[in-house]
Amino acid sequence: MKTTKLLTTAALIMGCVGSMQMAFAENTQNTVENPFEGNISIMRIFAKETPVKTVRDWMSKGAGAKWEKMIQPTVLENGSAPLLKNFFATAVVFMGSQNEDSGIAAFYNVWQDSILLFQMDNSERFSAPENFIFLPGAVFRGEKFNAEKPAQSICPTTEAFDLAIIQTYQATKKVFDSKFSGKEAMAEFAGYLKNDSDGMFADVTVNAYLNAKLLAELKDPGNTAALKEADRFGDLLQSGSTGELEKVFSGGSAKSMIEKFTAFPAETRENIVITAYLKGKDQTIYAYASSIWPELAVLISVPKENGKPSFLMLLLNDKFAQQIMNIKSR
Protein backbone atom coordinates (compact mmCIF):
# COMPACT_ATOMS: atom_id res chain seq x y z
CA MET A 1 0.00 0.00 0.00
CA LYS A 2 1.60 3.24 -1.04
CA THR A 3 0.23 5.24 1.80
CA THR A 4 1.21 8.74 0.84
CA LYS A 5 -0.83 8.70 -2.34
CA LEU A 6 -4.05 8.66 -0.41
CA LEU A 7 -3.70 12.14 0.97
CA THR A 8 -2.38 13.70 -2.21
CA THR A 9 -5.11 12.13 -4.26
CA ALA A 10 -7.69 13.51 -1.88
CA ALA A 11 -6.95 17.03 -3.01
CA LEU A 12 -7.12 16.04 -6.68
CA ILE A 13 -10.34 14.21 -6.18
CA MET A 14 -11.99 17.20 -4.64
CA GLY A 15 -11.63 19.03 -7.90
CA CYS A 16 -13.86 16.43 -9.42
CA VAL A 17 -16.40 16.09 -6.66
CA GLY A 18 -18.15 19.30 -7.55
CA SER A 19 -18.63 18.34 -11.15
CA MET A 20 -19.72 14.92 -10.00
CA GLN A 21 -22.77 16.39 -8.33
CA MET A 22 -24.23 16.66 -11.81
CA ALA A 23 -23.32 13.09 -12.62
CA PHE A 24 -24.81 11.99 -9.34
CA ALA A 25 -28.01 13.87 -10.04
CA GLU A 26 -28.22 12.35 -13.54
CA ASN A 27 -27.52 8.91 -12.20
CA THR A 28 -30.19 9.15 -9.53
CA GLN A 29 -32.67 10.43 -12.06
CA ASN A 30 -31.92 7.53 -14.38
CA THR A 31 -32.58 5.11 -11.55
CA VAL A 32 -36.03 6.50 -11.18
CA GLU A 33 -36.80 6.67 -14.89
CA ASN A 34 -35.51 3.23 -15.87
CA PRO A 35 -38.07 0.68 -14.64
CA PHE A 36 -35.71 -2.24 -15.18
CA GLU A 37 -32.98 -0.66 -13.06
CA GLY A 38 -35.59 0.31 -10.48
CA ASN A 39 -36.66 -3.33 -10.10
CA ILE A 40 -33.09 -4.52 -9.76
CA SER A 41 -32.23 -1.87 -7.18
CA ILE A 42 -35.24 -2.88 -5.10
CA MET A 43 -34.19 -6.52 -5.22
CA ARG A 44 -30.70 -5.63 -4.03
CA ILE A 45 -32.16 -3.91 -0.98
CA PHE A 46 -34.04 -7.11 -0.07
CA ALA A 47 -31.13 -9.37 -1.02
CA LYS A 48 -28.78 -7.63 1.39
CA GLU A 49 -31.01 -8.85 4.23
CA THR A 50 -32.03 -12.32 3.04
CA PRO A 51 -29.86 -13.19 0.03
CA VAL A 52 -30.68 -16.90 -0.14
CA LYS A 53 -34.45 -16.56 -0.25
CA THR A 54 -34.79 -13.20 -1.99
CA VAL A 55 -32.67 -14.07 -5.00
CA ARG A 56 -34.14 -17.57 -5.30
CA ASP A 57 -37.71 -16.26 -5.27
CA TRP A 58 -36.89 -13.40 -7.62
CA MET A 59 -35.30 -15.58 -10.28
CA SER A 60 -37.15 -17.87 -12.68
CA LYS A 61 -37.76 -21.38 -11.31
CA GLY A 62 -34.76 -22.92 -13.07
CA ALA A 63 -32.37 -20.09 -12.22
CA GLY A 64 -33.62 -20.02 -8.62
CA ALA A 65 -32.90 -23.74 -8.20
CA LYS A 66 -29.43 -23.27 -9.68
CA TRP A 67 -28.83 -20.36 -7.27
CA GLU A 68 -29.95 -22.29 -4.21
CA LYS A 69 -27.76 -25.27 -5.04
CA MET A 70 -24.72 -23.19 -5.98
CA ILE A 71 -24.62 -21.02 -2.87
CA GLN A 72 -25.20 -23.86 -0.39
CA PRO A 73 -21.53 -24.07 0.63
CA THR A 74 -21.71 -20.49 1.91
CA VAL A 75 -24.88 -20.91 3.96
CA LEU A 76 -24.37 -21.54 7.68
CA GLU A 77 -26.39 -24.04 9.72
CA ASN A 78 -28.67 -21.29 10.99
CA GLY A 79 -29.54 -20.39 7.38
CA SER A 80 -27.59 -17.13 7.28
CA ALA A 81 -25.18 -16.30 4.47
CA PRO A 82 -23.02 -13.43 5.78
CA LEU A 83 -20.61 -13.33 2.83
CA LEU A 84 -23.51 -12.96 0.39
CA LYS A 85 -25.20 -10.38 2.61
CA ASN A 86 -22.05 -8.29 2.49
CA PHE A 87 -21.88 -8.73 -1.28
CA PHE A 88 -25.39 -7.37 -1.87
CA ALA A 89 -25.11 -4.66 0.78
CA THR A 90 -22.50 -2.69 -1.16
CA ALA A 91 -22.92 -3.92 -4.75
CA VAL A 92 -23.63 -1.35 -7.45
CA VAL A 93 -26.02 -2.06 -10.30
CA PHE A 94 -24.71 -2.23 -13.87
CA MET A 95 -27.35 -1.97 -16.59
CA GLY A 96 -26.72 -3.37 -20.05
CA SER A 97 -29.02 -3.02 -23.04
CA GLN A 98 -32.66 -3.72 -22.30
CA ASN A 99 -35.74 -4.21 -24.40
CA GLU A 100 -39.27 -5.34 -23.64
CA ASP A 101 -38.31 -8.99 -23.78
CA SER A 102 -34.88 -9.29 -22.28
CA GLY A 103 -31.72 -7.56 -21.16
CA ILE A 104 -28.45 -7.91 -19.28
CA ALA A 105 -27.67 -6.49 -15.86
CA ALA A 106 -25.26 -7.12 -13.01
CA PHE A 107 -24.44 -6.49 -9.39
CA TYR A 108 -20.80 -5.61 -8.90
CA ASN A 109 -19.11 -5.34 -5.53
CA VAL A 110 -15.71 -3.70 -5.83
CA TRP A 111 -14.78 -4.48 -2.18
CA GLN A 112 -15.08 -8.20 -2.93
CA ASP A 113 -14.27 -7.75 -6.63
CA SER A 114 -17.08 -10.09 -7.73
CA ILE A 115 -19.88 -9.70 -10.22
CA LEU A 116 -23.26 -11.39 -10.42
CA LEU A 117 -24.14 -11.20 -14.09
CA PHE A 118 -27.64 -12.05 -15.22
CA GLN A 119 -29.96 -12.19 -18.18
CA MET A 120 -33.32 -10.60 -17.47
CA ASP A 121 -36.72 -11.67 -18.60
CA ASN A 122 -38.43 -8.33 -19.11
CA SER A 123 -41.65 -9.72 -20.54
CA GLU A 124 -43.15 -10.15 -17.09
CA ARG A 125 -44.59 -7.29 -15.07
CA PHE A 126 -41.64 -7.44 -12.68
CA SER A 127 -38.53 -8.25 -14.70
CA ALA A 128 -36.52 -11.14 -13.26
CA PRO A 129 -33.33 -13.06 -14.05
CA GLU A 130 -33.77 -16.23 -16.06
CA ASN A 131 -30.09 -17.16 -16.08
CA PHE A 132 -26.97 -15.95 -14.29
CA ILE A 133 -23.33 -16.51 -13.53
CA PHE A 134 -21.40 -15.32 -10.49
CA LEU A 135 -17.78 -14.49 -11.41
CA PRO A 136 -14.69 -13.09 -9.75
CA GLY A 137 -14.00 -9.64 -11.21
CA ALA A 138 -10.69 -10.84 -12.64
CA VAL A 139 -12.33 -13.53 -14.77
CA PHE A 140 -15.03 -11.10 -15.90
CA ARG A 141 -12.35 -8.64 -17.05
CA GLY A 142 -10.50 -11.38 -18.91
CA GLU A 143 -7.68 -11.62 -16.37
CA LYS A 144 -6.55 -14.73 -14.58
CA PHE A 145 -7.94 -15.39 -11.11
CA ASN A 146 -5.24 -16.12 -8.58
CA ALA A 147 -6.18 -16.79 -4.95
CA GLU A 148 -2.61 -16.07 -3.87
CA LYS A 149 -2.71 -12.61 -5.43
CA PRO A 150 -6.02 -11.07 -4.45
CA ALA A 151 -7.52 -8.14 -6.34
CA GLN A 152 -5.97 -4.77 -5.54
CA SER A 153 -9.39 -3.53 -4.44
CA ILE A 154 -9.44 -6.24 -1.72
CA CYS A 155 -5.86 -6.09 -0.56
CA PRO A 156 -3.77 -3.40 -2.27
CA THR A 157 -0.10 -4.22 -2.62
CA THR A 158 1.07 -2.08 -5.50
CA GLU A 159 -0.93 1.11 -5.20
CA ALA A 160 -2.95 3.31 -2.87
CA PHE A 161 -6.30 1.87 -1.83
CA ASP A 162 -8.36 4.77 -3.21
CA LEU A 163 -6.81 4.39 -6.65
CA ALA A 164 -7.12 0.61 -6.48
CA ILE A 165 -10.84 0.95 -5.79
CA ILE A 166 -11.42 3.44 -8.60
CA GLN A 167 -9.23 1.59 -11.11
CA THR A 168 -10.80 -1.79 -10.40
CA TYR A 169 -14.27 -0.32 -10.55
CA GLN A 170 -13.62 1.48 -13.79
CA ALA A 171 -11.90 -1.48 -15.47
CA THR A 172 -14.88 -3.69 -14.62
CA LYS A 173 -17.45 -1.14 -15.77
CA LYS A 174 -15.57 -0.60 -19.00
CA VAL A 175 -15.68 -4.30 -19.82
CA PHE A 176 -19.36 -4.46 -18.89
CA ASP A 177 -20.27 -1.50 -21.10
CA SER A 178 -18.21 -2.72 -24.05
CA LYS A 179 -19.82 -6.15 -23.99
CA PHE A 180 -23.37 -5.48 -22.91
CA SER A 181 -24.41 -2.16 -24.39
CA GLY A 182 -25.05 -3.33 -27.93
CA LYS A 183 -26.61 -6.07 -30.01
CA GLU A 184 -23.92 -8.57 -29.07
CA ALA A 185 -24.96 -8.53 -25.42
CA MET A 186 -26.72 -11.91 -25.46
CA ALA A 187 -23.87 -13.59 -27.31
CA GLU A 188 -21.37 -12.14 -24.84
CA PHE A 189 -23.48 -13.37 -21.94
CA ALA A 190 -23.61 -16.85 -23.49
CA GLY A 191 -19.81 -16.73 -23.65
CA TYR A 192 -19.56 -16.16 -19.90
CA LEU A 193 -22.02 -18.97 -19.24
CA LYS A 194 -19.47 -21.41 -20.67
CA ASN A 195 -17.49 -21.03 -17.44
CA ASP A 196 -17.99 -23.71 -14.81
CA SER A 197 -20.60 -22.09 -12.57
CA ASP A 198 -19.68 -23.86 -9.30
CA GLY A 199 -15.96 -23.35 -9.87
CA MET A 200 -16.45 -19.64 -10.52
CA PHE A 201 -18.58 -19.29 -7.41
CA ALA A 202 -15.82 -20.98 -5.42
CA ASP A 203 -13.45 -18.21 -6.53
CA VAL A 204 -16.09 -15.58 -5.74
CA THR A 205 -16.28 -17.06 -2.23
CA VAL A 206 -12.52 -16.85 -1.84
CA ASN A 207 -12.64 -13.13 -2.71
CA ALA A 208 -15.47 -12.52 -0.26
CA TYR A 209 -13.64 -14.56 2.36
CA LEU A 210 -10.46 -12.52 2.02
CA ASN A 211 -12.36 -9.25 2.39
CA ALA A 212 -14.17 -10.67 5.44
CA LYS A 213 -10.93 -12.01 6.91
CA LEU A 214 -9.31 -8.58 6.82
CA LEU A 215 -12.42 -7.05 8.40
CA ALA A 216 -12.51 -9.78 11.05
CA GLU A 217 -9.30 -8.35 12.50
CA LEU A 218 -11.58 -5.74 14.04
CA LYS A 219 -13.22 -8.45 16.13
CA ASP A 220 -9.89 -9.75 17.36
CA PRO A 221 -9.73 -9.57 21.17
CA GLY A 222 -6.43 -7.72 20.92
CA ASN A 223 -7.82 -5.11 18.57
CA THR A 224 -10.65 -3.57 20.57
CA ALA A 225 -9.28 -0.05 20.07
CA ALA A 226 -9.59 -0.40 16.30
CA LEU A 227 -13.16 -1.68 16.62
CA LYS A 228 -14.04 1.29 18.82
CA GLU A 229 -12.48 3.62 16.30
CA ALA A 230 -14.36 1.96 13.43
CA ASP A 231 -17.60 2.40 15.36
CA ARG A 232 -16.80 6.02 16.19
CA PHE A 233 -16.10 6.84 12.53
CA GLY A 234 -19.21 4.88 11.56
CA ASP A 235 -21.37 6.92 13.94
CA LEU A 236 -19.92 10.16 12.61
CA LEU A 237 -20.53 9.18 8.99
CA GLN A 238 -24.04 8.00 9.76
CA SER A 239 -25.23 11.00 11.68
CA GLY A 240 -22.47 13.51 12.42
CA SER A 241 -23.00 17.16 11.54
CA THR A 242 -20.63 19.04 9.22
CA GLY A 243 -19.06 20.69 12.26
CA GLU A 244 -18.59 17.41 14.11
CA LEU A 245 -16.94 15.81 11.09
CA GLU A 246 -14.68 18.81 10.51
CA LYS A 247 -13.48 18.61 14.10
CA VAL A 248 -12.34 15.02 13.67
CA PHE A 249 -11.07 14.82 10.10
CA SER A 250 -8.36 16.65 8.25
CA GLY A 251 -7.03 16.65 4.69
CA GLY A 252 -6.33 19.30 2.08
CA SER A 253 -9.93 19.51 0.92
CA ALA A 254 -11.64 17.81 3.82
CA LYS A 255 -13.84 20.81 4.61
CA SER A 256 -15.31 21.06 1.16
CA MET A 257 -15.63 17.29 0.84
CA ILE A 258 -17.37 16.98 4.21
CA GLU A 259 -19.86 19.67 3.23
CA LYS A 260 -20.75 17.69 0.12
CA PHE A 261 -20.90 14.45 2.06
CA THR A 262 -23.28 15.79 4.69
CA ALA A 263 -25.56 17.04 1.91
CA PHE A 264 -26.45 13.44 1.04
CA PRO A 265 -29.91 12.34 2.21
CA ALA A 266 -30.05 11.17 5.83
CA GLU A 267 -31.22 7.70 4.75
CA THR A 268 -28.17 7.24 2.51
CA ARG A 269 -25.83 8.14 5.38
CA GLU A 270 -27.70 6.21 8.08
CA ASN A 271 -27.10 3.01 6.17
CA ILE A 272 -23.36 3.35 5.90
CA VAL A 273 -21.49 0.12 6.70
CA ILE A 274 -17.83 -0.75 6.92
CA THR A 275 -16.43 -2.39 3.78
CA ALA A 276 -12.71 -2.72 4.41
CA TYR A 277 -10.12 -2.49 7.16
CA LEU A 278 -6.48 -2.32 6.12
CA LYS A 279 -3.65 -1.98 8.56
CA GLY A 280 -0.60 -0.59 6.78
CA LYS A 281 2.90 0.28 7.92
CA ASP A 282 2.25 4.02 8.16
CA GLN A 283 -1.51 4.21 8.40
CA THR A 284 -4.72 2.32 8.96
CA ILE A 285 -7.60 2.65 6.52
CA TYR A 286 -11.26 2.24 7.36
CA ALA A 287 -13.53 2.12 4.30
CA TYR A 288 -17.27 2.59 4.38
CA ALA A 289 -20.07 2.60 1.80
CA SER A 290 -23.78 3.24 1.92
CA SER A 291 -25.90 0.12 1.60
CA ILE A 292 -28.73 2.27 0.28
CA TRP A 293 -26.62 3.97 -2.39
CA PRO A 294 -23.39 1.90 -2.66
CA GLU A 295 -21.85 4.34 -5.14
CA LEU A 296 -21.07 6.52 -2.12
CA ALA A 297 -17.88 5.43 -0.35
CA VAL A 298 -15.66 7.06 2.25
CA LEU A 299 -12.09 6.15 3.11
CA ILE A 300 -10.73 7.26 6.44
CA SER A 301 -7.01 7.07 6.86
CA VAL A 302 -5.49 7.20 10.34
CA PRO A 303 -1.75 7.96 10.40
CA LYS A 304 0.39 5.82 12.68
CA GLU A 305 2.08 8.85 14.15
CA ASN A 306 0.04 11.61 15.73
CA GLY A 307 -2.25 13.46 13.40
CA LYS A 308 -5.88 13.81 12.47
CA PRO A 309 -7.51 11.10 10.40
CA SER A 310 -8.05 12.13 6.78
CA PHE A 311 -11.41 12.00 5.05
CA LEU A 312 -11.79 10.97 1.42
CA MET A 313 -15.11 10.65 -0.36
CA LEU A 314 -15.29 8.45 -3.45
CA LEU A 315 -18.16 8.19 -5.87
CA LEU A 316 -18.35 4.95 -7.78
CA ASN A 317 -19.70 6.09 -11.11
CA ASP A 318 -18.28 6.41 -14.60
CA LYS A 319 -17.68 10.12 -14.80
CA PHE A 320 -16.05 10.37 -11.40
CA ALA A 321 -13.83 7.36 -12.10
CA GLN A 322 -12.80 8.71 -15.50
CA GLN A 323 -11.83 12.05 -14.06
CA ILE A 324 -9.73 10.40 -11.38
CA MET A 325 -8.00 8.30 -14.00
CA ASN A 326 -7.37 11.36 -16.16
CA ILE A 327 -5.78 13.16 -13.23
CA LYS A 328 -3.59 10.16 -12.54
CA SER A 329 -2.44 9.84 -16.16
CA ARG A 330 -1.45 13.50 -16.48
Partner: peptide
Protein backbone atom coordinates in the same frame (compact mmCIF):
# COMPACT_ATOMS: atom_id res chain seq x y z
CA UNK B 1 -19.61 -6.03 21.14
CA UNK B 2 -23.15 -7.22 20.75
CA UNK B 3 -24.33 -4.77 23.34
CA UNK B 4 -22.44 -1.82 21.83
CA UNK B 5 -22.67 -2.77 18.16
CA UNK B 6 -23.43 0.02 15.77
CA UNK B 7 -24.79 -0.48 12.33
CA UNK B 8 -21.53 0.44 10.63
CA UNK B 9 -19.59 -2.56 11.93
CA UNK B 10 -22.58 -4.86 12.40
CA UNK B 11 -21.69 -6.58 9.15
CA UNK B 12 -18.21 -7.66 10.29
CA UNK B 13 -18.02 -11.46 10.50
CA UNK B 14 -16.09 -12.81 13.48
CA UNK B 15 -13.10 -15.11 13.00
CA UNK B 16 -15.03 -17.95 14.59
CA UNK B 17 -17.86 -17.58 12.09
CA UNK B 18 -15.36 -17.40 9.27
CA UNK B 19 -13.89 -20.71 10.37
CA UNK B 20 -17.41 -22.14 10.52
CA UNK B 21 -18.02 -20.86 7.00
CA UNK B 22 -14.89 -22.58 5.73
CA UNK B 23 -15.88 -25.88 7.28
CA UNK B 24 -19.46 -25.54 6.04
CA UNK B 25 -18.23 -24.80 2.53
CA UNK B 26 -16.20 -27.98 2.55
CA UNK B 27 -18.83 -30.21 4.10
CA UNK B 28 -21.62 -29.08 1.83
CA UNK B 29 -19.66 -29.21 -1.38
Amino acid sequence: DTAKKTKATGNVISKEDLEKLTTTAMEKS
